[in-house]
Design a protein around this nucleic acid. Structure first.
Lengths: 183, 183
DNA sequence: GTCTATACGAAGATAGAC
DNA sequence: GTCTATCTTCGTATAGAC
């Protein structure tokens, strides 16, 4: 069967949030991108936009988490490189138009609940990345510091690359980050 | 004489952009925070919101640039620490409510001109920070890489700290960044 | 320079028919 | 489940008086 309408809408929301921001993402956009019928909005999301955005944040979280899981067992350098590649592909596949949906929500919401969800995502990524690096041999405290830096740098570098419409800042940052793991 | 009304409005816009995002910042908010009279909007900013936001981005740029200039002549570690302190104070003084106005504009605008202004800011910071570090003794290519990473990390760490409502991610990132400059 | 009043459009949300 | 129509709110912007 065709992909579930609700799932398609959440998927579209992630893309739109990453591209146009929280307030820039309207139901009209979500319907247009997902091809969902108008009546689906409050049928599938009785909680309205908040509910849709919450689901989108959860999806963005799970996507990255699943990808991180695939890197288990690799050396620290490869794990970091994989995480950077994830963001590099977001930039290149969108022609430098898209970024991180979770970041977009964080800087634009005034809803405590939604902010807490975003926090959960960052904490989750940070925690899992940290344990992966520790399992790969890095001392625990260094792994935690590096994980936080890798995520923060990636997020910031994506924003800079979008603004400058150039991969240069991202590539510089990626090089600097990976250099710390190649002795 | 009292601070110029126009200047107060731009100042308020920077604060609001950093706190509530681009679409979350309305003229009503700007008037309330700046104490400017209603009639001042299109008198001082005939170009409307775009003009106000453009000015706000320019102010944010100049603020950080002037601060960077004060660090000239210091060793690389101190320069980096000063840049991090700038963002730390943004977070602490706002009770983890504010971030970077330029980032907020970047992820929410669909105006090419405004995006280009934001890009100019990031490029400007990156360039000046790079030359400061190079003047302080770092090899030019390493200085450029480190400058890009410092800015990207700071921006990302500020977002994470806001989301998590905790300085922990920021402190971890700051520690990791400074460790690279203390041999 | 600053005011009020108002036009205009966008977007979220609700109601009720099919 | 999906549709249309409508309500409401809000924010930008304009017009014209003081």
């Amino acid at each position: 069967m065709a992909k579930d309408v609700r799932a398609r809408m959440v998927e579209a929301a992630v893309r739109l949030l990453a591209t146009k921001g929280l307030e820039g993402t309207s139901f009209a956009d979500v319907l247009a991108l997902s091809g969902a019928p108008r009546g689906s909005i409050y049928h599938h999301f009785p909680g309205g936009k908040d509910e849709l955005v919450t689901e989108a944040v959860a999806l963005a979280r799970e996507r990255a988490m699943a990808y991180l899981e695939e890197q288990a067992g690799k050396p620290p350098h490869d794990i970091a490189a994989a995480f950077l590649d994830l963001w590099r592909s977001v930039l290149t596949r969108s022609d430098l138009g898209a970024g991180c949906a979770v970041l977009a929500v964080t800087v634009a919401t005034d809803d405590e609940e939604l902010l807490a969800r975003a926090a959960e995502v960052f904490r989750g990524w940070r925690s899992r990345l940290g344990t992966l690096l520790a399992d790969a041999g890095l001392p625990a405290d260094l792994a935690a510091r590096y994980a936080a830096t890798l995520i923060a740098s990636s997020e910031g570098a994506v924003v800079m690359a979008r603004a400058e419409q150039s991969m240069e800042p991202f590539d510089l940052v990626a090089e600097q980050l990976l250099a710390q793991l190649t002795p």
